[in-house]
């Protein structure tokens, strides 16, 4: 039965259902229950933003609050995964990868290849990403490109509650290490979500809007902004006249090149939207691939709409400027259409 759930609820439900389905699924992270060792309530937090709330009591002994010690517990989750468990480790903010990156990219990402195919590491690392939370430079980054760069990792970034549940279930069932990026400003976004379990396959982009004039590629929070831009630009909008096809990549590794290329072959124009910084970003990656594969189909220059090459600022007035806006996306579409 489909109900309207927030992305926060959808993620919680995915974890709950997978824990019920498979006893090897365990959760690890800082304050994912909260209140350990104190005199007050256990499961006091359920994660810093309440995403895992309630699971501690539902699945006794399988929701492990960790010390503030990312190297150790992310590494332990990876080790446990290599030994047959299916840990879902919460890194809280993806920015914290700075203190445990070795375990992710030198260990988890490499085991399968480095050990000649004889190991598998079915771990999911959940982490919050993205700006707009007034959390400044060390808690707001969109570091998806760093992980996408690394062979052996899979990188997922849902744009809505329905996808979040299905992609997280797939992440848990998947036998490779998955970095599951949750945009903190989407936690309260709502969608119809089936009560039953379902898995959305990786490497399948979602064409969220059909259009023949310009392709917009986006993921995460940027999908909504791209849709807003597309709406503004469509014939009934004030700017008039352009029908955009909007592609939600959903997974950045693997990435669905076919859907992007098919679309650009039809539209001849491409705007890549990425909340990450511009250099070596998903936007630049998609742009390069399209330039290589669709050169003859292109009718105008590919345009990228990204955050600037700066850290995320604190002051709301600056942070709002930092995050790519629907207006910026629409302007980029208009610009490529003009040529």
């Amino acid at each position: 039965m489909a109900r309207t759930l927030t992305m926060r609820q959808a993620i919680n439900e995915a974890l709950d259902q997978e824990m019920a389905r498979d006893q090897n699924v365990i959760l690890m992270g800082e304050d994912i229950a909260g209140g350990q060792g104190g005199d007050g309530e256990l499961d006091a937090w359920g994660g810093p933003l309440g995403v895992t709330k309630g699971l501690y009591h539902k699945h006794p002994g399988r929701v492990l609050d960790t010390p503030l010690s990312e190297s150790a517990f992310i590494g332990a989750a990876i080790g446990a995964a290599a030994c047959g468990m299916r840990p879902v480790a919460e890194l809280m903010f993806l920015d914290f990868m700075g203190v445990c990156f070795d375990q992710i990219f030198n260990q988890a990402a490499k085991f399968k290849y480095m050990f000649g195919g004889k190991a598998q590491t079915p771990i999911v690392i959940r982490a919050m990403v993205g700006a707009g939370f007034r959390a400044a430079a060390q808690h707001s980054q969109m570091l998806t490109p760093l992980f996408t760069h690394i062979p052996g990792l899979k990188v997922v970034c849902p744009s809505n509650a329905y996808d979040a549940k299905g992609l997280l279930i797939q992440s848990i069932r998947d036998n490779d290490p998955v970095i599951f990026c949750e945009h903190k400003n989407l936690y309260d976004s709502q969608a119809d979500v089936p009560a039953e379990s379902y898995a959305i396959p990786f490497g399948e982009a979602n064409v969220v809007r059909d259009g023949g004039d310009c392709t917009i590629v986006a993921y995460g929070l940027m999908v909504g902004r791209a849709m807003e831009a597309a709406k503004q630009l469509s014939p009934k909008g004030p700017k008039g006249g352009v029908e955009c096809e909007v592609i939600d990549l959903r997974t950045l590794s693997p990435i669905d090149w076919d859907t992007v290329i098919d679309s650009v072959e039809r539209t001849g124009r491409l705007v890549c939207v990425d909340e990450a910084n511009p250099r070596c970003s998903i936007a630049s990656d998609v742009s390069a691939m399209v330039a290589q594969e669709c050169f003859k189909a292109l009718k105008g220059p590919i345009r990228m709409v990204t955050a600037p090459h700066t850290p995320v600022p604190f002051s709301p007035v600056l942070e709002d400027l930092y995050i790519p806006s629907a207006a910026a996306i629409a302007a980029a579409v208009t610009k490529t259409m003009a040529q």
């Binding site: 329905y162 039953e196 379990s197 379902y198 898995a199 959305i200 064409v207």
Partner: peptide
């Protein structure tokens, strides 16, 4: 597109 999406969502249920 919605019809296709709805059927796909059904097909993906466990």
């Amino acid at each position: 597109r919605q019809l296709v999406d709805d059927v796909l969502k059904y097909k993906r249920l466990d």
